[in-house]
């Protein structure tokens, strides 16, 4: 049984508009038998934070195309993406890419 996990979540580039316009969120994930990974975090966000139109944020069990995920200031591709095991106080950023000019 792992202890509860504190995370700092950030949303930007417009993704925050799906979360009441709030960019910074401190969340605590409940303790569970296995360590939390990103796939489980996304399911948790979908169930606990996304009020409406989850398809603007997710596609299947991952984020939709056009959202970059950053774990502690690095592209999540460098960290194992969905399989990354979250550590207490990790900083996870979801940033919508911008196309305007």
């Amino acid at each position: 049984m792992a202890a509860p996990l504190g995370l700092h979540l950030e949303f930007g580039g417009g993704a925050e508009l799906l979360f009441d316009g709030v960019k910074n969120h401190h969340v605590v994930l409940p303790g569970q038998s296995d360590p939390w990974n990103m796939k489980q975090l996304l399911a948790w966000i979908r169930g606990n934070m996304l009020k409406e139109r989850p398809e603007l944020f997710m596609q299947g069990d991952t984020v939709r195309p056009g959202i970059l995920v950053l774990i502690n200031d690095a592209d999540w591709e460098l960290m194992g993406e969905l399989e990354y095991q979250l550590q207490d106080q990790d900083n996870v950023v979801f940033i919508s890419t911008l196309h305007g000019g």
């Binding site: 580039g13 939709r64 195309p65 305007g100």
Partner: peptide
């Protein structure tokens, strides 16, 4: 790129680095 009060900047396809599609293989809905 820029929108609202935010901006982003990257250099692609330079000295062996990634291209835009490496980051975004599929276009956003």
């Amino acid at each position: 790129s820029a929108l609202r009060m935010e901006g982003q900047l990257t250099v692609y396809n330079y000295r062996g680095g990634p291209c835009y599609r490496c980051l975004f293989p599929s276009p956003p809905p």
